[in-house]
Design a protein around this nucleic acid. Structure first.
Lengths: 193, 193
DNA sequence: ATATAATGAGTGAGCAGTCAGTCATTATAA
DNA sequence: TTATAATGACTGACTGCTCACTCATTATAT
């Protein structure tokens, strides 16, 4: 971990890389292009990141961490189970909409084989609050007793399903509808009668 | 479109490419490696495909077409709406399990930016039966009146959610459970009361 | 004999990562 | 205070390698 070397410039590299990766693809973005965009010479890149792969990985974990921090900041113990799920749903989509490049990068890279499986697994740790919510729902008999991973996996993929539609839907009212409808379908699927 | 040049060899190139793409990633697989695996010299590749990109694209559409053909072969007009949805669900997962490489390639490539948007759109045409099923369900008031694209998008992503779990679950009984449970959640989400 | 299929060495472009050297800043010495 | 030394962030030309695609030549089929 570099402790010298301005942290601002480090962020600048991550920012520029995210831009270029989303615009042109990871493999089509050279480290030289990232350095240029960040306003440094090509060699400077490697003072901040030992390899290109390290930056690719760090972007993934950074995104996971930032989204996780945002969601958990919204969650309070006083919320009901339904409110908790809705907060996760709405908050995740909100954060993705406010960080579209992060969303696109995450999707682009997650199943691409560009990331070592260990890094993917590490980034999954940031979904811990999913399973706390599911556990509460199961304890309180509010959701059907299906395997936790199944419910978690469906929650995530349903959010993706809605996000994919939202990126093609400019009208805010329609966007709001899709978010609400999507959650209704998810919740009706898992709730007990 | 090459009309001479043995179609079998063409298939061989597509087969070899799918293997290698899934094992090593598209960008890390050279046309020379594909040619070698297919048992020809490196230059022969370009007699069958003008560019590497053409092969990448053709694999996507081929997979879409083959899966679509399999599913529609299962669908009969006599099926109820529930049966139709279940057949799509079960058939899609069955086909993906029997063609795991195709599944992995599809996932890897779909959001990667490696495919021109037009080709992605073209491959979406193979999901036509989704929307016929949804339309029927809406007509017969069996599913809630949400936008068709939302239901379609959720259906697809729910299948992906289950597939992702299945690839890590070796026990066939547990696999069967996940498939059934997953469908229950999806159906309970969209059905009218 | 002629057309078509196949070959594989060759070409040029692109890229990750290196390294010898520059220069502004900071530490030390007088 | 001022001269000198040390530091380390920064530079960019360079290297070695990979790869998509070409083409002159050879093999095969009819």
């Amino acid at each position: 971990m570099p402790r010298k070397l301005s942290p601002e410039k480090r962020e600048q590299f991550l920012d520029s890389a995210l831009n270029l990766f989303v615009a042109n693809g990871v493999k089509n973005t050279s480290t030289a292009a990232i350095a240029k965009d960040a306003g440094t010479a090509s060699g400077t890149f490697f003072l901040y990141f030992p390899t290109k792969q390290d930056l690719i990985n760090e972007l993934v974990t950074q995104i996971g961490r930032q989204q996780s921090e945002y969601i958990t900041s919204l969650l309070a113990a006083s919320l009901s189970v339904w409110e908790t799920f809705f907060t996760i749903w709405y908050g995740s989509i909100r954060w993705f909409l406010d960080n579209r490049e992060a969303y696109q990068y995450f999707r682009q890279v997650r199943d691409s084989g560009l990331i070592a499986p260990e890094v993917v697994r590490e980034s999954e740790q940031y979904f811990e609050y999913y399973y706390q919510a599911i556990q509460r729902g199961l304890n309180e008999d509010l959701i059907k007793p299906y395997p936790m991973e199944l419910i978690g996996s469906l929650l995530y993929q349903d959010i993706v399903a809605v996000m994919n539609l939202l990126t093609a839907e400019p009208d805010p009212d329609q966007q709001e509808n899709l978010i609400q409808f999507g959650f209704s379908i998810f919740w009706d699927g898992i709730k007990t009668e």
